[in-house]
């Protein structure tokens, strides 16, 4: 019996060319994994593949259906809606109702009725992350979640992740900073696909 998320021998592609290959890890309930690697090393592509937004070139991602909550650089925050409306929308989509916990976790209570266009970049980011809590999904897949957050907000985020892990969730996070979470680390640099090898059936054809 594996964990919540099992990635085996995964090759991910961008524009038909393999970027990372042979990526493998397992995430158990209560565990977090931090992805490391330079800009452009393929972390985003890997996360999008894990989240099911793009098909893997080879290998498998095993995860229960509807288990992943994905968050990327773009928060999907609608500027003309208020903070509470933005969150309530996602809560409705995911079939939950309460947004108070999410507001509290990211200290957005005082901003709830403010339109999102009046938020600073960091506040917007917090709103984007608060969405994760209302999804109620066990596996968080996060791409650079701390961009534009100040130190206090990073602290809020770290405690939100820890609370999520304590509740039996799991998190896969690509980040460059130290979150202060007890988590394993995976450097994707060695997984970089070697350009000259045959990369799956498609690309071989156009060697």
């Amino acid at each position: 019996m594996g964990g919540l998320l099992e990635v085996k021998d995964l090759t991910v592609q961008r524009g038909g060319i393999a970027v990372l290959s042979g990526v493998g890890f397992t995430l158990d309930a209560g565990a977090a994994l931090i992805l490391r690697g330079a800009n452009g090393s393929g972390k985003t592509t890997l996360l999008r593949t894990v989240a099911g937004l793009q098909p893997p070139m080879a290998g498998t991602v095993r995860v229960a259906p509807d288990a992943i909550a994905y968050a990327a650089h773009a928060d999907g925050v609608k500027a003309v809606l208020t903070v509470a409306e933005n969150l309530r929308f996602w809560a409705g989509v995911y079939g939950s109702v309460a947004i108070e916990d999410a507001l509290a976790a990211f200290d957005l209570g005082g901003l709830a009725e403010r339109p999102a266009q009046a938020l600073s970049a960091g506040q917007k980011r917090r709103l984007g992350l608060a969405r994760l809590i209302v999804t109620g999904r066990p596996v968080w897949v996060l791409d650079e979640p701390t961009v534009s957050l100040d130190r206090a907000a990073v602290g809020l985020f770290a405690s939100a992740v820890q609370a999520h892990l304590a509740a039996g969730g799991a998190a896969l996070i690509a980040t460059h900073i130290d979150l202060g979470i007890d988590a394993a680390e995976l450097d994707v640099t060695p997984c970089r696909a070697i350009a000259t090898t045959a990369q799956g059936v498609f690309d071989e054809a156009f060697r």
Partner: peptide, 13 residues
């Protein structure tokens, strides 16, 4: 552009 579509694609709809 604002990423909502990515999030909707991973949502239970």
């Amino acid at each position: 552009e604002d990423g909502s579509l990515d999030l909707l694609a991973t949502a239970p709809i």
